[in-house]
Design a protein around this nucleic acid. Structure first.
Length: 270
DNA sequence: AAAGACACCTGTCCGC
DNA sequence: TGCGGACAGGTGTCTT
């Protein structure tokens, strides 16, 4: 489900309800996510959540005793609910807050994660080697150009690699490459610096717009309050195989790259 | 070091 | 209607 805009939308949705609030209880109904939820997650109980931050697609709930590291995987979602809200299938974890609300993690496919660290979360194994934030200044044409020299991998897989840049998932990789007019099949090492500048601008633009729209709802993504996102109304390539390109009259193609579907216009993207 | 395949898991949709 | 297979918004790990 979530790429960076969906994760950021989720973070913004839960933050007002839990930042500076005390956790009374962490209820774990299903500990088997991508990795088992550690028992130490209960150390969050009685702690005040000082900050709700994000690094890549990881949401960080920081308390003075430690930090909960949360990832939504492919199908995870967080919602803000009243404390006795009925539990449904795949509702794996509740973080109960002393203001009568709770944050509920639902994740049918269980590719998500909930971990605990007492150290600086940015030094955690899963987080320390991540690439720059796409909306930050460190993500720029010079950086991408330098990082791509000698790389034969396709430009699409390159920008989806979290060690190069975080937060660009399958939808927004397709959309950004469409906006930039770059073929997803082109080798990363064969893209000029000038075209990387165009691509960087496109990625930032697409992600910003998607965040403004509350993310993309394809099937079941909802914001923390239960509303869908609206960015899907402006997808140019993703999910449009066989349909007419919105910029020319040819058809959107679908191919497989790294076991993921890629959608693009072979006329607009070179 | 880089690239590719595979793993994790459930739900849904499509063709027969 | 049932069943098998492909596919789905992610990413760490293992093998070449």
């Amino acid at each position: 489900m979530p790429e960076l805009p969906e994760v950021e939308t989720t973070r913004r949705g839960i933050r007002p309800y839990i930042e500076q609030q005390r956790v009374t209880k962490v209820v774990v109904r299903q500990p088997q996510l991508r990795w088992p939820i550690p028992d130490a997650i209960h150390d969050l109980e009685q702690q005040v959540i000082n900050l709700v931050t994000r690094r890549g697609k990881y949401i960080l709930l920081e308390s003075s005793r430690g930090t909960a590291i949360l990832h939504l995987g492919m199908s995870g979602s967080l919602r803000v609910l009243e404390k006795d809200y009925p539990v449904e299938k795949h509702d794996h974890v509740d973080i109960v807050i002393d203001n009568g609300k709770l944050i509920r993690l639902r994740d049918p496919r269980r590719f998500g994660a909930l971990l605990w660290t007492t150290k600086n979360p940015l030094k955690h194994k899963l987080i320390r080697s991540l690439g720059p934030e796409p909306l930050g200044d460190a993500f720029n044409a010079s950086y991408l150009y330098a990082a791509s020299r000698g790389r034969g991998v396709s430009i699409k897989q390159f920008i989806m690699n979290g060690h190069i840049v975080v937060g660009v998932g399958n939808i927004y990789a397709c959309e950004s490459l469409f906006m930039a007019g770059i073929s997803p099949r082109r080798a990363a090492g064969n893209v000029s610096k000038a075209r990387y500048q165009i691509l960087v601008n496109a990625i930032k633009e697409v992600l910003k717009k998607a965040i403004e729209q509350g993310g993309t709802t394809l099937k079941d993504f909802t914001q923390a309050g239960g509303n869908p996102g609206y960015f899907q109304q402006q997808l140019f390539a993703y999910g449009r195989a066989g349909e007419t390109c919105l910029q020319c009259d040819s058809r959107i193609k679908q191919i497989r790259q790294g076991q993921r579907s890629t959608f693009y216009c072979s006329r607009c993207q070179k």
